[in-house]
């Protein structure tokens, strides 16, 4: 019945299984460590994603509303979301791209939408106000200036990155 040639001895069998199982356990230990070590590399890409928004020569002194799409990883799923920016040149000629999200509770602010507050960003929820540079006006609910997008200009094209807090301003 049994074929002597193909039989594995007890010692061999144990050797094989131990090496096999040990190898798996070793891999299980090492894989996450390697993962952690190169994690910043894997993640870094997402943080620095810049998206084309408009041509540089279209930027005016008056804020213009621009929407663009970014890929967002939200825990479990990845999706494309719309972002909005108010893009203009400030009095020093510097490009400023402001996020329209009110720093109070996250409503969407609008530029120059109220007659009584001309040349200001206005939040319809609790009458929060910001001056043209997005700095919050005292005695209104917001506690910090509107966030500004990181930007870069390449070949006359404006690219926007992440909106960052400007609390020190």
């Amino acid at each position: 019945m049994t074929d002597k040639k193909n039989q594995v001895s007890r010692r061999q069998f144990l050797n094989y299984t131990l090496t096999g199982v040990g190898g798996f356990m070793g891999a299980a230990l090492v894989a996450p460590m390697v993962g952690f070590a190169v994690d910043p590399l894997l993640k870094g890409e997402k943080d620095t994603d810049f998206v084309y928004v408009m041509d540089e020569n279209e930027i005016t002194n008056e804020p213009q509303r621009k929407t663009f799409k970014v890929d967002q990883v939200d825990g479990w799923y990845e999706s494309q979301v719309d972002r909005t920016a108010w893009v203009f040149r400030d009095e020093n000629g510097e490009i400023l791209a402001l996020s329209p999200v009110c720093t109070h509770l996250g409503c969407t602010v609008d530029w120059n939408s109220r007659e009584e507050f001309s040349n200001e960003f206005f939040c319809p929820c609790h009458d929060g106000r910001y001056d043209k540079n997005g700095v919050n006006i005292a005695d209104t609910p917001p506690t910090e200036p509107l966030h500004a997008y990181e930007y870069k200009v390449e070949d006359g094209k404006l690219y926007l990155g992440k909106a960052k807090s400007r609390k020190e301003a």
């Binding site: 009110c102 509770l105 929820c125």
Partner: peptide, 8 residues
């Protein structure tokens, strides 16, 4: 609707 008026 919620997106724009989130704070209220």
């Amino acid at each position: 609707i919620e997106k724009e008026l989130k704070g209220r």
